[in-house]
Design a protein around this nucleic acid. Structure first.
Lengths: 181, 181
DNA sequence: CAGTGAGCGGAACAAATGTACCAAGAGGCG
DNA sequence: CGCCTCTTGGTACATTTGTTCCGCTCACTG
């Protein structure tokens, strides 16, 4: 609901209707609207971390070069984005809300750490020499590119934008490693 | 106001109070709240494009290598972010709102185009061989890194995160050019 | 100088929203 | 079976919000 119609749309009545429950259920199960939002955000954040972890854990054991990694990551994230753009919109809303609510900020911090850890793992797998530093760059680029796609959708995002960009980035990061070696 | 307390906080009364005007002024000057938001978003988007254009136009004529570019861009954007984080929060809200309101989506599209144009210009200046393709990557990375800083602020963002990341990216993008040549 | 219209100030109203309250049902347990 | 607690269903109420309305001020204009 947050992703589809914005955080304003999350009213007790709207939530109840979506859940097929009476309005009172929303105040029966949650102390307040604030708490309801908090639980929803926490749940969603954890699901998102799990989702991303799954992607990298699936990729980690394979022997892939930079281009393959780019293709795999692009495919996984692009289809995720296409299948459910609202969720990604909602996540960015979550991040922004985190700038205002301390408890959410912490959760967003954990979420970002998970992303960084995962990027680092991937970078190590393709042989980056500075996986920790590069992870920030990779996560930033992925986040930014996906946000760009949300904002201004391109018809063939995965093929024309996302994969090429990631391939170039990954290739550069590992080529440097090769050059140094 | 959007950046500080979220889009929900933009009520006629709150706007009037911030402007030091009576409530009726908000409906006198704007047909509806929707129109008020629209005008505010359009104005802000144009200001933002102008701001970014100014940065690159200032940098373009200079003879800078990748590291200098990274330092200059990092300094400009990081101080902008630190001076007024709310504005950047508001801009991301704007992007998200753009996924729901067509008129805003167009404006966000123009905004992104401006960014891409500017990145391309900068990349050309440092000698990238694929400035158009790389621009997406650079804009994505910058957007993502700045969003990350909003979400989870690091104490020495410019020095410890932003500049190093940009320097690495710019260096890689141009080193490749050198290698090819 | 009278008039006139743009803008100010605040009150008022209907709709939406957060929340409280109460009555009925359901399902286990003595 | 009768009771009791958890849950449901719906209504009610105060507050907030979008919007309207009307009287007032004041600068300009013919």
């Amino acid at each position: 609901m947050i992703g589809e119609r914005g955080p304003d749309a999350v009213t007790h009545r709207a939530v109840a209707q979506r859940a097929g429950l009476p309005v009172s259920a929303t105040t029966y199960w949650f102390e307040s609207k604030e708490q309801l939002l908090q639980e929803a955000f926490l749940l969603a954040a954890r699901e998102e971390v799990a989702r991303v972890e799954a992607v990298v854990l699936e990729l980690a054991p394979r022997e892939l070069d930079a281009a393959d990694w780019a293709a795999a990551v692009a495919a996984a994230l692009a289809s995720d984005l296409e299948d459910n753009p609202s969720r990604h919109v909602a996540f960015t809303e979550l991040v922004l809300e985190g700038t205002r609510r301390p408890w959410l900020r912490d959760e967003v911090g954990r979420w970002e750490s998970a992303w960084l850890r995962l990027a680092e793992m991937g970078l190590r797998a393709v042989g980056s020499t500075k996986p920790v530093d590069d992870a920030r760059l990779v996560v930033g680029a992925i986040t930014g590119l996906m946000l760009g796609q949300l904002a201004n959708p391109q018809p063939h995002f995965e093929d024309d934008v996302f994969r090429p960009a990631l391939e170039r980035l990954f290739t550069l990061l590992t080529e440097r490693a090769i050059l140094r070696a």
